[in-house]
């Protein structure tokens, strides 16, 4: 019974995050900005790129280019819109997830709101609830953009719908897993930082300087290069070609996420509110 209460509180906390994005003025403005960006991407970038990739004139150039990048298999996809979408979304959604999840507990902690909540939910529940909320938000937005891409392709060629839905379902799972460690990393940063801006700055430093520092360490101690596996998105380049289903492509982001959440929970439990 007790664990049911835990799940219930986690769900209530997650649901509150959904409301924060979809039913508040600030959230709706953010959504409008998101929709605008994706309209530009789909209308100008994806549809233009599809025209280029599909045209007989440019097909050889596209094959060469995709071949160099190890993305030849993408050209075989029945719905080229989804191939272009995938190339963009695989990098754009992690960045978006970092920004949208940058304020999971920071401002609530600074404002003192977390004090009201912590008398009604454990810190672990708060961490998991907020994380789950952000995952759901990102998943919904991924689903909407994929659906828009499929509809765009169907508008061009009605026969693409079935293949599009099938391919889109797989991409939805792939993208949702890709963003997990990025959101979890923000959960971790939020467990001790007091502002979302600072969380983004620290995140930028981690991604900007982290590989450089690890590179230096690895120069002296080769095994230190394994530290690169702590960076979310390590597997994206391999996953991008969609050539084979490597288990690490899915297990690595999940392991990273679990690790970040465990550390976030430990810090959160020790931090003063």
């Amino acid at each position: 019974m007790q664990f049911l209460n835990n799940y219930k509180r986690i769900w209530i906390l997650a649901r509150f995050e959904l409301i924060r994005l979809f039913l508040t003025k600030r959230g709706i403005i953010a959504l409008a900005a998101f929709a605008t960006v994706w309209f530009i991407i789909l209308y100008y970038l994806v549809s233009s790129a599809v025209a280029i990739v599909s045209s007989d004139v440019f097909q050889d150039i596209a094959k060469q280019l995709f071949g160099v990048l190890g993305l030849t298999d993408l050209l075989k996809w029945p719905v080229p819109e989804l191939a272009i979408y995938w190339l963009i979304a695989a990098y754009l959604f992690p960045s978006f997830a970092l920004f949208s999840a940058s304020d999971q507990t920071c401002s609530d902690r600074t404002r003192g709101t977390l004090r009201f909540i912590s008398l009604r939910a454990t810190r672990t529940e708060i961490i998991l609830g907020r994380f789950l909320g952000q995952v759901l938000i990102t998943a919904i937005l991924i689903a909407v953009t994929i659906l828009a891409t499929v509809l765009m392709a169907t508008y061009r060629d009605l026969t693409l719908f079935d293949d599009g839905v099938l391919q889109a379902s797989k991409l939805f799972v792939d993208l949702s897993i890709i963003v997990l460690p990025f959101i979890a990393m923000m959960t971790l940063l939020n467990s001790f930082l007091r502002s979302s801006k600072m969380a983004i700055v620290v995140c930028t430093l981690i991604f900007g300087l982290g590989p450089f520092v690890i590179g230096l360490l690895a120069y002296k101690l080769p095994i230190a290069s394994q530290l690169n596996y702590i960076f979310p998105g390590m597997q994206i380049t391999e996953l991008l070609g969609q050539t084979e289903m490597a288990l690490t492509n899915y297990s690595l982001p999940i392991i990273q996420s679990v690790l970040f959440l465990i550390i976030a929970n430990i810090i959160m439990k020790r931090t003063s509110l």
């Binding site: 404002r111 709101t113 004090r115 009201f116 008398l119 009604r120």
Partner: peptide, 16 residues
């Protein structure tokens, strides 16, 4: 939970 409640000094509700 639900048995102990508090008004902490300077704690604010979410303005949104």
């Amino acid at each position: 939970f639900g048995k102990l409640a508090a008004l902490p000094q300077d704690a604010q509700l979410d303005p949104r």
